[in-house]
Nucleic acid binder design. Structure first.
Lengths: 314, 314
DNA sequence: TAAAAAGATGTTATCGTTAACATGCTGTTA
DNA sequence: TAACAGCATGTTAACGATAACATCTTTTTA
C-alpha cells in the first residue's frame, strides 16, 4: 500500500511536509507543494482513513438508526439512505445501519429515524451527537431536521381548493406523533382560513385500510370532493376506491404526501407533496457536524413542494 | 475512552494478556481469563475498531456498489441494504454505499448490484474481492449470488397451470441480462414440459407500460388466462388492466416476481415469487469473506418461494 | 547590522491494538 | 539432577498519520 512515507521519499521531503500539504497547505511553500502534489499523483497515494482516525480520535462512521418498523417505510428509507451515504462519503465518512439503540465507542454520531416518544430518554443519554429525522417532542431539546409538514398539507389543501373541489376532507394517520399532528393542523388551519368546514378521518397507514374506509363512506361523499391524505399509501387506497366509479380527477381530487415511489406506480399517478430527500440528507448531516464540531443543537424544517399529476384537475 | 491498558491495570496483567483473552482465549490460563473478563465487564471496555484495523491492515468496511438506476429498484434495495448492514455489523464491519466504480484503499471488499455487461471489465480489474448480486456473465469467472430465477418462474408457471388457467402467457422485460433471460427460460421450459403453447411479450419494467400492453391485447385475451410476470411492477400494471373487467383472480390469474413492497400495496395483493433477501444478504457476505479469507470464488443460487395471495385462484 | 520575528521544514512521540519475540516457570526425561 | 520441552505471560516494535515541539533559514525592525 502506498503511504505517506512513499510520497515523502519520492518528493525528497519529510512525511510531515506531505501531511501538511494535504491538511494545512497554507503552511507550505509553493514549490514544495507542487513537488509533493506531483509525487502524490505519480505514485497514486490515497490517505489511509484508518490511521487518520486513530490519531484524530475519530471513527469516520455515522450510525443511521432505524427505530421504525422497517416494513412500513421502505421506499423512503432507500432513497434517504442512499442520499445520506452519498453526503457522508464526500466527507470521508462511512455509514453504519442499526435498528437498536446502543452506546458505542466506534461511531461519531447518530441520525435517528422513526423514533417514538418512548425512545427519547435513551437517545438523550447517548454519549455521541444525535440528530433526529422528524420534529423533536416539545419538552426535549434535541437537534432535528424535518420536512415542514404543516406547510406541506397547507399546499395540498390549497391546491384542492384552487382546483375547485367543493367539499374537502382529510384522511390522517392514527398515531400521536408531531409529524402527523402537524399535517392535520396544516389541513385544519387552511380550512379555517378559507371558511370551509373540516372533516377529519384517521386510519392506519396502509392503502387497503384507506380503501376500505372510502368504500364505507362512499355514499355520504358528495361529488366534487377533494381528499387530502397524510401519506401516499393512504392516497393510493383512496384513489383505488374512488376509481371504482372512475371519478378521479373530475369528480374527486386526491393529494398524497411523500413523493417517493408509490406516487409513480399508482394509476393514475398521484398528485403529491414531495419530501426533498437529497436536501433532507444534506441537512441531517450538516446538523450532525454542527453538533460534532461546535456543540450546537440546530433544527431545520425543509420546505416541501407540490407535484401536480393526475389525481387532481388541471 | 476505556482502552486495553485500563483493563490491564484493573486486572493486574499486561495489555497483551488482555488482547489474548479476546483473540486467542485458548492461550490464557483459566484464572487469568476470568479475572480479565471481570475487569472488562467492570469498566465497560469495548475494543477500538480503528486501532485493530490499523494493525491488521484491514478497514472493516465493505462497499455496496449500486450501478443500477436507483429509481427503478428502490424497495428491493432498502430491504437488501438493511439486511446487509445487519449481517456486516455482526462481523464488526461497516457499510459504504457508492454508485461509481473506484479503486479505493479504504475498503476490504465490494458487493455489486445492478451491473451491466459493460461494467464487468472494470469490476474484474479491482484490487479487492468482489461479489456480484446477480448471476455473472458466462465468459467471466466472478463470484456471485443470485436468486434462482429460472426456478422461480417455474414455480409461478406451474402454479398457474395447477390452479386451472387454460392459456398462460409471459410478460418479460426488454433487457438482455442473465436474470431476465433465466426468468423467460423458466416459463418456456415449464410450458414445453407441460405441452402448452407459449406466448411471450416484453415491456419496460414499469407498471404503466404493462398496463397499456394488456389494454391493447385485451381483445385477443381469452378468459381463463394466466399471466406470468417477470417483476411485481409488471404484475401490478397487469392486474390493474385486468381488473377493469373485475376479472382477477377468477377469469385471469397473475403472478409477480420479487415479493417486496409492491406485492403488498397492490389491490388485490399479488401472488408472487419472493426473493429471500435476508438469505441473499447473508450469502453475499459469506461469499465475500470466503474470497477475502481463502481466495475462493464461490457462487450460489438462492431458492425463492411462491407466496400465494389474491391474484390467483385458491 | 544585530536581535527578534516570521516562515519553512524536520524530529519525536503518540493514538490503541497485535504479531513476534523474549522471559520465566513447571514438569518431564535420561 | 541437568537439560530441555512446553506453557503462561510480558516486552518491543509496528501499523500510518499528525500534533507539538525543535531547528534552521529568511525577513523585518530599531
Amino acid at each position: 500500500m502506498v503511504n505517506l512515507a512513499d510520497v515523502a521519499r519520492q518528493a525528497h521531503v519529510s512525511k510531515m511536509t506531505v501531511s501538511r500539504v494535504l491538511n494545512h497547505p497554507e503552511k507550505v511553500s509553493v514549490e514544495v507543494k507542487t513537488a509533493v502534489m506531483a509525487a502524490i499523483d505519480l505514485i497514486g497515494y490515497q490517505p489511509n482513513r484508518i490511521a487518520k482516525a486513530l490519531v484524530n480520535h475519530q471513527n469516520y462512521v455515522i450510525q443511521f438508526l432505524v427505530l421504525e418498523d422497517i416494513d412500513t417505510v421502505e421506499p423512503n428509507y432507500a432513497i434517504l439512505l442512499l442520499q445520506l451515504a452519498d453526503v457522508l462519503n464526500q466527507k470521508g465518512y462511512t455509514l453504519e445501519i442499526s435498528t437498536i439503540i446502543t452506546d458505542n465507542d466506534n461511531i461519531d454520531g447518530i441520525i435517528v429515524s422513526g423514533w417514538r416518544q418512548s425512545d427519547i430518554i435513551a437517545l438523550e443519554a447517548l454519549s455521541v451527537p444525535v440528530v433526529l429525522y422528524g420534529e423533536s417532542p416539545i419538552d426535549h431539546d434535541m437537534a432535528y431536521v424535518d420536512v415542514d409538514n404543516r406547510y406541506g398539507v397547507k399546499l395540498a389543501t390549497k391546491h384542492l381548493i384552487q382546483t375547485g373541489y367543493q367539499k374537502i376532507i382529510y384522511i390522517g394517520m392514527s398515531v400521536d406523533l408531531p409529524f402527523s399532528n402537524e399535517r392535520e393542523l396544516g389541513y385544519l388551519d387552511t380550512m379555517a382560513n378559507n371558511r370551509r368546514v373540516s372533516k377529519v378521518y384517521n386510519v392506519d397507514n396502509h392503502s387497503h385500510v384507506a380503501e376500505k374506509l372510502i368504500d364505507n363512506i362512499m355514499t355520504q361523499l358528495s361529488e366534487n370532493t377533494g381528499v387530502v391524505c397524510a401519506t401516499d399509501r393512504i392516497a393510493l387506497g383512496v384513489v383505488r376506491a374512488l376509481n371504482k366509479q372512475n371519478g378521479v380527477p373530475e369528480q374527486y381530487g386526491v393529494v398524497g404526501f411523500d413523493g417517493v415511489f408509490i406516487d409513480q406506480i399508482s394509476s393514475p399517478q398521484l398528485t403529491t407533496i414531495r419530501q426533498p430527500f437529497a436536501q433532507i440528507a444534506q441537512s441531517l448531516v450538516d446538523h450532525l457536524f454542527l453538533q460534532l464540531e461546535h456543540g450546537e443543537l440546530g433544527m431545520q424544517r425543509i420546505v416541501p413542494s407540490l407535484i401536480r399529476r393526475d389525481t387532481t384537475r388541471a
